[in-house]
Amino acid sequence: MTDILIRADGLSVGFPIGGGIFRKDVLKAVNNVSVSIEKGSFFGLVGESGSGKTTLGRALLKAVPITEGHARYSDGEVDLDIASLEGPALKDYRKRAQLIFQDPYAALSPRMTVRDIIAEPLEVMGITRTREETDARVREIAAKCRLNLEHLRRFPHAFSGGQRQRISIARALVSGPQFIVADESVAALDVSIQADVLNLLKQIQSEMGLTFMFISHDLSVVAHTCDHVAVMYLGRLVETAPTRQLFAGPRHPYTRALFSAIPSLDPDDRGKAQKLTGEIPSPTNQPSGCKFHTRCPFAVDQCRAEEPQLEGDGSGHEVSCHRWKELMETVPA
């Protein structure tokens, strides 16, 4: 059994959205999610906008407050309860868990040199004591991200999207974290550059033994980088499985529809995709029963009344659908 680095149990994140003095409305962006992320793995989180994937990632970094449930981080050195972290323990967790943002154009201060951008976490967190020590650490990390000394003296505007994303990665890595959340980190990049950044992330992960949570809406990118994938819909996990298993036999009708909606590179596949009608409902006005029933072509009365729970088959593949077994037999993927 491999070690679990992050274990979330019944995790929910709610945001207050108005209401009155006596009534408080809460938007539940993440609802009762349980996940375990193995140490040294590349964990993928997919879903449409509004599915809560970013909020889940941030909750695990304690960048948004966890309103219900638990999340634990244990890397062998420390064992932390993420929801209740504060003071020095929270500062310590910040060194251990880091975030890489989506947009490399917005994430880097235009007024700082690349060296200062990468060095900032070291100085803020008090990791290095002298300037020499800081410089040595910055150079070491920069080299890992294929940035040379010349690059360190320049400002971010002089770099292309791929190079900027490498700077963002270097900044996230400099404090020596164990856990990194990469939120749509290649979505803003051009196709020819995207593969380069993905390869770099994979290489760093295996060299440094890091654990990644890779949040993406792009299933083909997730398929190529992640070991394990979780699919979210309207704040809930609907399916989770080892990558190969998931792509070989998706069980949830939503996962199947997502796969089918990826535009195929074969011009002769036109019109073959099974189409999902409608759009993701608003999280303030959630459907009863299974949250997906409003768009599911296979929904029956049970789906409208009763919310399905994640059920597994012992192979690590879990799905929350009342009818998945029946559908696997009767409806070809």
């Binding site: 190079q163 196709v191 020819s192 380069d196 993905l198």
Partner: peptide, 26 residues
């Protein structure tokens, strides 16, 4: 050719991702 090779393909998860080397010049 490079653009098509750089696309992650769902049919073959073992195929390595091959980026077009270098960056787009300014």
């Amino acid at each position: 050719q490079g653009l098509i090779a750089a696309l992650p393909k769902l049919e073959d998860l073992d195929a390595p991702l091959t980026p077009v080397p270098g960056d787009i010049p300014s």
